[in-house]
Amino acid sequence: MRRWSVVRMTGLAIAVVVAIGALYQLPASPFARHGYPDRPAPSTKAVAADQGVQRPVKPVEPADRSASRPVRPQPAITYPARGTVSYAVLPGDSAVIGRSGRLITFQIAIEGGINGIDRTALAEFVRATYSAPQGWASGGLWRFQQVGPGQDADFKLMLVTPATRDIICGGGYDRYTSCRIGDRVVLNIARWVHGIPNHGASLAAYRQYMINHETGHRLGRAHELCPGPGQPAPVMQQQTLGLHGCTPYSWPYVNGVRYNGRLGQYDDPIPHS
């Protein structure tokens, strides 16, 4: 698929190619791997109205605002196979993301043993993903707000080690994918750090996919199929396990229109690495 995005700045024009990305994931839960939709979020009429299939041909990515910021060296992220299975919840942020729709509160938590994460940058990245022009908050159905330790949250977005992923998500040995189970949106730190091979999009775009895919399950969305060769992959496709002719795409909306594929999933194997 073509990649577009032009960022114009006063006195200077620079072209920034924004990778149309997938950010990660796979079985939304051990149930979803066997063809069942993930455990449903609270049902609303807004969710029902969001089921129509739209297939725009030329998605326009949100501009990567980080491209205009000074680049600073980042510490390497390190992690063991299994962390402490205890979590540090990041401070909240009072800003509400989105202008209309149901308010969904969330926490961000990092498992002990994972080191090198810039926690402020992580929280900003998550909030920017939800607030992006093609993100979940853009359609008028949902608003998001990050809350801190000790506050009630509708879900917890968690960065966990591979073995802890299996403890939380269940379904046997995996250690590769991420999942959503109950009110936990579980992101595998191995995929966050390394992405997936031969994906065709940037690591930042894959991370956006991870967040949007697993959050989509929390919002009641099930897995979807590739609409056809050369088309953008729906964000609810298990892009971590295979694109099936589609091109990677990280977002639930395309040009302001909800972008869906036909419900279903492929019987792709889980890599053992």
Rank of each mutant, 00 (worst) to 15 (best):
M1P: 13
S5T: 13
M9T: 15
V18T: 06
G21P: 01
A22I: 12
P27Q: 05
S29R: 03
F31T: 12
Y36W: 08
S43F: 11
A46W: 05
Q54I: 02
K58M: 13
D64N: 11
R65K: 04
A67G: 02
T78G: 05
T78S: 07
Y79Q: 03
G83V: 05
V85T: 08
S100N: 04
G101Q: 02
G101R: 04
R102I: 13
L103K: 12
T105Y: 00
A109W: 03
I114A: 07
N115P: 00
D118P: 04
A123E: 04
G135T: 12
S138T: 10
Q146W: 06
V160I: 14
P162Y: 07
P162R: 10
T164M: 10
D166V: 14
I167H: 06
C169Y: 10
C169E: 10
D174C: 07
C179A: 07
L187R: 04
H194I: 10
G195N: 05
N198V: 12
G200W: 11
G200F: 09
A201T: 12
A205P: 04
Q208G: 05
H223K: 14
H223P: 05
E224I: 02
P227Y: 11
G228H: 03
G230A: 09
G230C: 10
A233I: 04
A233M: 12
P234H: 03
V235G: 00
Q237M: 15
T240E: 15
T240W: 13
L241M: 13
C246R: 09
P252H: 08
V254D: 00
V257D: 06
Q265R: 14
D267Q: 14
P271L: 11
S273C: 10
S273E: 13
